[in-house]
Design a protein around this nucleic acid. Sequence first.
DNA 1: AAAAAGCGTTGACAAATGTCAACAGGACAG
DNA 2: CTGTCCTGTTGACATTTGTCAACGCTTTTT
Lengths: 192, 192
Amino acid sequence: MHSALFTYIAQYTQATLTEEQQALVQQAFHPKKLRKKQYLLQEGDICRYMGFVVSGAMRQYSVDEKGAEHVVQFALENWWVGDRESYLMLTPSLYNIDAWEDTQLLVVEKADLLQLYEQVPALLQMARQMDDRHSMATQRRINAAISFSAEKRYAEFVECHPEFVQRFPQHLIASYLGITKETLSRIRKQAL
Amino acid sequence: MHSALFTYIAQYTQATLTEEQQALVQQAFHPKKLRKKQYLLQEGDICRYMGFVVSGAMRQYSVDEKGAEHVVQFALENWWVGDRESYLMLTPSLYNIDAWEDTQLLVVEKADLLQLYEQVPALLQMARQMDDRHSMATQRRINAAISFSAEKRYAEFVECHPEFVQRFPQHLIASYLGITKETLSRIRKQAL
DNA sequence: AAAAAGCGTTGACAAATGTCAACAGGACAG
DNA sequence: CTGTCCTGTTGACATTTGTCAACGCTTTTT
């Protein structure tokens, strides 16, 4: 169960963990199974742990006054879920996170993770690389949001995230792009 | 000239640097003055250093096919400028960064900064906190972009970034919000 | 098997936002 | 001082996108 995580760490850091370090990681990261539609976090909750997705598919979304959902993030295998703001500041989250497919997670609490960073430098290294990747991706997404038409945003999305296109339905992708499902449907029709 | 940076580091880390560490920081961070309108980075350049804004105002923006500018980031005193993606990956930048007011920077090259992180742990700590703040802010901005109307995005912007409203003209703020200057002008008129 | 919920599509129409052109005042450079 | 550029505003109009309702189809639940 933890091996996916070890592989992932190795991939990001070119470092192999000692057996001792592996044991520490196994102690800190707890397996958690979520059935489809089950919440990992609900609006108002404080996000007390981060999760590493071993298998499955999850989404993070906000709900507006009218009850409409807006997908802020998708997460598949080998990616992380959790609301960073709530996690870092210990404030009630603005978001919901739930499983879109049955999902296996490895969750780690903040205190344990901070301690691990000292014991397993490779983990810290990995975290920084994750942050880097994340900040580059969000920068591009913001640029797309303010610069591109809906059509162009969708084209870029398909090119950069074909995995998401396969695993999530169109109305979620539309919401991720900041448009309605009807508009996305028309864009797709036109693009043929 | 470097004292603003020391104050900033202290504020973020509750750590005071030793004289030795201060000397190392002074060696690595080079003062750079930019006149209004002068480029720090142009599209296609590789971003070889990050800058800490001691005084002044800068903006990072992209230019679309039609020649329209889209502001991706503003930076005032005590904030950082540079294109993270280009800096991290050593790829040509998609953005331009220029001074909106006469600006004093402290710039630091990647290799020097990485070395400093080892010598001055407080700097590393600060960098991580910066990344955290940045990722929380961008998450909110993305959520606003996909969830809110232009009017609401502007209201939130004014509330969260009054400094920007004072120092940058409306057409730049409009572009930051992903709308045209005419639309912003109408929103402001209506909001009275 | 039947019913319900989820998904994608379409049409008619409404609302939001963009585009283009013009204008006015202020800042600024020659 | 004078002209130019920058900024913000306004109006008329075009385009994009959203809203609402309906439909067919599949999947899930009962």
